[in-house]
Design a protein around this nucleic acid. Sequence first.
DNA 1: AACAGTACCATGCAATACAAAGTACTATTT
DNA 2: AAATAGTACTTTGTATTGCATGGTACTGTT
Lengths: 110, 110
Amino acid sequence: MDIENSKAQMRKGILEFCILSTLSVGDAYASDIIESMKSSKLIVVEGTLYPLLTRLKNDGFLNYRWEESKSGPPRKYYKITPIGETFLKELETTWNELVSAVNKITKKNN
Amino acid sequence: MDIENSKAQMRKGILEFCILSTLSVGDAYASDIIESMKSSKLIVVEGTLYPLLTRLKNDGFLNYRWEESKSGPPRKYYKITPIGETFLKELETTWNELVSAVNKITKKNN
DNA sequence: AACAGTACCATGCAATACAAAGTACTATTT
DNA sequence: AAATAGTACTTTGTATTGCATGGTACTGTT
């Protein structure tokens, strides 16, 4: 049980929340999302992101369209669906409750 | 992918943080910890807590002593070790960074 | 002595993030 | 046009975690 592993474990379950949030601002393809997260100090790699996008799509939270690129193969641009927006709101609530609970527990020393 | 599962996944990795935090305030045995968490709206069950305590003890972050009880079998009172305190500080940093990153990503709509 | 209550422990499962390797398409270089 | 580099997407296997479930052991009461 080292700190690196703990970091990884703490991230569990928040990525779908972050992905939906990012897409609720505007459509994007995988590399856009990775860049967006990286700029907020949340590193995600392809092997993590692609399966997640597929799962979110299969659950109806996202859909996608192919779009040509000037500098490489075509890209899958993902778009959040109305059902995805609803789910996102629930995730927000869950996240806020969790942060609130953790703060309550860990700030008792003050 | 339902909301209940997402809730469960978001909790992953924060329990050890909460346990160490709770014990840094004062020694406690399992039921104390469960009560403490429950009062902060973070439900933990025995099947989760006991293995976690054992793992934290095996890693040197906790130790315990047996203590008699007036109303039942003896209890294992856990105490955080100096190494545990150090690890707790690292977990605090990790948690704060994570919350900060998620906020940055999910509050872009404002 | 039998029972209920409390406390601790062990086993098996589902879900996730990630590493690693692979496939496919495009543009550039030779 | 063939080979190469770069971009984008996909698949497979692994370690870790939270939890449900069932079980063990000890105490006090009836």
